[in-house]
Amino acid sequence: MKKLTARIVYLFLLVPVLLKSQNTRIQYERTVNWSKIVQSLSFMSKEEKDRMAMGWGRGKAVPDPYILTIDSVQAVYEIDEDNLPRSEYYWRREKEIVHTQLISKKKLDYVEVLGKSFVFDEDLPKIKWKILNEIKEVAGYVCMKAETMDTVRNLKITAWFTHEIPISLGPENYYGLPGLILELSKNEDCAVITATKINLKNWNQPIKLPKKKKGKKTTSAKYNALISKHIKESIAAQRNPYWSIHY
């Protein structure tokens, strides 16, 4: 109990120590379990699903590093280029930058998907959360469980948020809980995003904003309709839609 109070006091009082160092940043790791995703594809037979699970499905997935940086007015969530496991070859990743304006409550995301680029400039859509009676620890913080639905992909989203960091943000497009989301699980761990390192210093050091990128202006409604259509068409064509879009 004292620890918590101390932590929050620290957060309020000692934060503005202006060091020429890093911003407030939360590092996440995103792990995708492909063989589990395949299990949910209706056009595959039990035999084909088992074959996949028994074969390469047993291999270890390499997580992708993501980073959420926050200052007093905005937050950016994107892939953490500096911590990508280095190899000699980088394939091109489709960029997805979640950019949130905290004061005007705007969504200013930039998304590359299906060979197209989109920019958003709209009010943050509201997320309907259910709060559940379960607690667990993530990255040293006690978190409470909350659930919502990804209605576009039809996935159950489980979020673990902590009251100890009263920031109503989280990874990807998930926010609106009475604390920072430190873990997010999609469809019973088909994809898991977990916080690994939390640095709450230097709140007032402005974060580095992504370079202004060109893209077609869109809204969440239009964008979701596009993704929905792609998923429907891919399933009808008996292909895994998540090879071409983010799960």
């Binding site: 957060l11 309020f12 934060v15 503005p16 926050i70 200052d71 007093s72 905290l102 004061i103 409550k105 009263p166 920031i167 109503s168 943000l169 009475p178 709140w203 007032n204």
Partner: peptide, 10 residues
Amino acid sequence: FIKILLVLSL
């Protein structure tokens, strides 16, 4: 800033 942030985000 923190207070603003908290109020806003809450």
